[in-house]
Computed example of a mutant assay.
Amino acid sequence: MRLLAINGSERARGSTWMAAQRALAHASERGWDTEGVDLAERRVVRCECGRCNSRTDPCPVDDDVADVVRSMIAADAVVFAAPVHGFGLSSLMQTFIERAGVGHLRFERPLTNTIGAAVVIGRRYGHLDVHAQLMHNLLLNRFIVVGSGFPVTIHSGGEEGILSDTEGLDSLRRTVDRIVDIGTALAESGTVLPRPRDAERRVGRTG
């Protein structure tokens, strides 16, 4: 079983990276394989054609988005980790989920029934707004969304950064535990979950 954590911060080794690394380390301790992707170290460019909703083939932009999408499809679980920027989602993560979703994932929804979770890191405000946006994206792509009972929102404004937020880090740990428990149970049971009958291609839209 494999957990993929995607760090959507423009700082490849900042607080969001630290949170993603803690998630990966805990999954590894539970016996899962892990992979981390730092979008700041990948080439992710904005849409260059403006025809996403009318295209019938995947996005032709030559960057690293398709490669990250392949890693998502190969994983059993995906964690989106993103910082709060200006009370909203970081522009890098926003660009990635738009490009990945409209340019690659909408054709067949290949992430259907993959386990997904969201982690949001910020100094003081805006955590829940960003968390909701990431959760909506997980739902759009038909993930099985799991959590600890509380949104994983981690405050980075303490004297020790995210290490000061012991409650937020505990929620992250418990969320990873649920990911591992559910993923392992599904794998061991041999259950094959049904895929949706419609693919929601949204082709033919204009404007």
Rank of each mutant, 00 (worst) to 15 (best):
Ile154Pro: 07
Arg55Ser: 12
Asn7Met: 03
Glu10Pro: 15
Asp63Val: 02
Glu200Gln: 08
Ile179Pro: 02
Gly204Asp: 05
Thr112Leu: 00
Arg201Thr: 14
Val44Phe: 04
Gly158Glu: 00
Cys49Ala: 04
Gly168Val: 05
Val102Asp: 14
Asp170Ala: 14
Ile179Thr: 01
Ile144Val: 14
Val119Ile: 14
Ala25Glu: 15
Val119Gly: 02
Thr191Gly: 05
Gly86Pro: 09
Asp76His: 04
Val176Thr: 08
His155Tyr: 14
Asp165Cys: 04
Ala40Gly: 13
Met72Ile: 08
Arg2Thr: 14
His26Lys: 12
Glu108Asn: 14
Gly161Thr: 05
Asp198Ile: 01
Glu188Arg: 14
Ala27Trp: 02
Leu111Tyr: 02
Thr114Met: 00
Asp64His: 02
Gly50Ala: 09
Phe80Val: 03
Thr56His: 06
Pro194Lys: 07
Ser91Asp: 14
Asp181Lys: 11
Glu10Gln: 08
Ile154Phe: 02
Asn113Glu: 05
Arg197Val: 13
Ile97Cys: 10
Asp57Val: 08
His127Thr: 06
Ala118Asp: 09
Arg195Ile: 01
Ala185His: 08
Glu159Asn: 09
Tyr125Asp: 15
Trp17Lys: 09
Val78Phe: 05
Cys52Tyr: 10
Val78His: 05
Ile97Ala: 03
Ala66Val: 09
Phe87Arg: 10
Thr112Met: 00
Arg55Ile: 01
Arg22Lys: 12
Phe107Ala: 10
Arg174Cys: 06
Ser9Leu: 07
Val61Glu: 05
Val203Glu: 15
Glu188Gly: 05
Ala132Arg: 15
Leu89Ser: 09
Thr175Met: 11
Phe80Asn: 04
Ile182Thr: 15
Arg178Asn: 08
Arg197Ile: 04
Arg11Gly: 13
Ile97Tyr: 11
Ala12Gln: 06
Arg142Val: 09
Asp64Arg: 06
Cys47Ile: 06
Leu105Lys: 03
Leu3Gly: 06
Gly158Met: 01
Asp67Leu: 12
Phe107Val: 07
Val176Gly: 00
Glu98Cys: 09
Leu172Asp: 04
Arg201Val: 12
Ala75His: 00
Val176Arg: 01
His104Ile: 06
Asp62Trp: 01
Leu138His: 08
Ala20Met: 08
Gln133His: 07
Thr191Arg: 11
Gly88Arg: 07
Arg42Tyr: 07
Met93Asp: 03
Phe87Leu: 15
Gly207Leu: 12
Asp165Met: 03
Asp64Met: 04
Pro60Lys: 01
Ile144Pro: 02
Asp62Leu: 05
Gly86Ser: 12
Asp38Arg: 14
Ser15Leu: 10
Val192Ala: 14
Trp32Phe: 10
Gly86Ala: 11
Asp63Arg: 10
Thr114His: 12
Thr184Glu: 13
Gln21Tyr: 06
Ala5Arg: 07
Arg195Tyr: 02
Val152Pro: 04
Arg42Lys: 15
Val78Gln: 02
Leu163His: 12
Trp32Gln: 13
Met1Ala: 11
Asp165Val: 02
Ala25Val: 06
Val79Tyr: 05
His104Tyr: 15
Trp17Val: 03
Met1Lys: 10
Glu188Tyr: 00
Gly103Leu: 05
Gly36Tyr: 03
Ile182Lys: 00
Arg142Glu: 13
Gly158Ala: 01
Val79Met: 14
Asp38Tyr: 06
Leu24His: 04
Arg205Ile: 09
